[in-house]
Design a protein around this nucleic acid. Structure first.
Lengths: 227, 227
DNA sequence: CGATTTCCTTGATATTTATCAAGAACTTCA
DNA sequence: TGAAGTTCTTGATAAATATCAAGGAAATCG
């Protein structure tokens, strides 16, 4: 009889490529860890040769400047797989820190436990490569935004990406500081930009919700590179 | 008797993992291409499922904004391997364009020709993964610079990275526009920053050369994040 | 060589973004 | 309920960066 964990693991694109016996071994080799909200899982710069799969909660990958600004570069959601650079490159320091956004449960495989498994599973390596290319594209998008887009443009894109699907009012689930961390700016700039969008009738703002009133215009802002 | 091409290919970390027969097949499957200086090899956004090895010349990977600004994100030198994202991910568009900085000769393998070779060579896939992690780290550095560093800081780092080894005067081999493209800024800003470094006695500037007169101070600027 | 083009330099100015400060609104929790 | 903490908002101001414009210097090329 399969454990529920096993079935959930198999839903991930990487693990799906394993046969049942490897998957079972994988599940047995994993180390479970629970983190409270706001707990650090790894610090920026750590040598961390592990791969993990997140069962529940939410984890944020971020860079921090000495001056206290932070930039969120990825969020890791239940079912996702993530790994430290040192999994592949000895002594390579983590280019981001990982912090639990909510209380989270993850399953970790240290390098030496998982290496044999994907050395004998070419398909799994292949899937990992695909995932890395995905990450690259994501990094590439961030670079493009930082290099070519204004702050209102970046904010517009955040709004569209995050709330763009919904049609009615959407709950504001990020503080201004959090939005600022997503686009690499400050609370104040975000606040002003939001009210400028409201002045231009692209959104309506209440204490708890946003309503998109002109998604096209917002989307245009989000996709138009400034110069 | 080995061809000279074969021996040169084997110097690359990825191809080094192949046995002689695979390497020979690889060499036979390659398509040679020559590009004049300033010729485009791939455009940003193209679907380009190829891998290539560069024999001679110099290739630049860059992003361009509609307004004509460009950002150089990598340079590809003789002996290097590079590939399009569509090699792994169907329909994934190139996140950069590739342009020949000098007249260049490359050897290309379309996806369908090289895929079989590295599906049967786990070690080669592994090396590709390592290379991808390297690229990730590089991308990560760029993000950090763009997010947290001032333009003088970014320029200082460019100078150190590019000319830091030498001790005497070094030849200026980049135009101001090119330097600007490396750090995501403009010709004028670069010019002013250079003269500020000179005013602060960190470098001496002549028409054709730079001389570092206080490398430590420059290096400090390069590594200090602004906020 | 002379003409053309590219590259560099600098001032003036505009724009964007950040910082500082203060207070208001809201939330939490005892 | 009231106190403490967090979050939001806005104005004033400063700093960083870009843009525009113009001229000069150097390189290239016929």
């Amino acid at each position: 009889m399969k454990s529920p964990l096993l079935e959930k693991l198999a839903l991930n694109q990487v693990f799906a490529s394993l046969n049942e016996s490897d998957l079972t071994e994988l599940a047995q080799l994993s180390i479970s860890r629970d983190y409270d909200k706001d707990a650090w899982i790894v610090f920026y710069g750590d040598i961390w040769p592990n791969l993990f799969w997140i069962e529940s909660g939410l984890i944020t990958a971020l860079k921090e400047s000495p001056g206290g600004r932070s930039l969120i570069v990825a969020t890791i959601e239940p079912g996702d797989v993530f790994w430290g650079t040192a999994l592949f490159l000895d002594h390579a320091p983590m280019p981001v820190g990982l912090i639990a956004e909510k209380a989270s449960r993850i399953h970790i495989w240290p390098r030496e436990r998982i290496l044999p498994i994907f050395l004998r599973n070419g398909k799994m390596s292949w899937e990992l490569s695909r995932m890395m290319v995905n990450r690259m594209q994501h990094a590439s998008d961030i670079v493009e935004e930082l290099a070519f887009q204004s702050i209102p443009g970046r904010l517009a894109r955040l709004l569209i990406d995050r709330y763009g699907e919904e049609d009615g009012p959407v709950a504001r689930d990020l503080t201004l500081d959090e939005m600022a961390a997503h686009i690499g700016s400050t609370r104040e700039m975000v606040c002003r930009a939001l009210y400028r969008f409201a002045d231009d009738d692209m959104i309506e703002i209440t204490r708890t919700e946003f309503t998109f009133t002109n998604r096209d215009q917002l989307s245009q802002l989000a996709h138009k590179h400034t110069d």
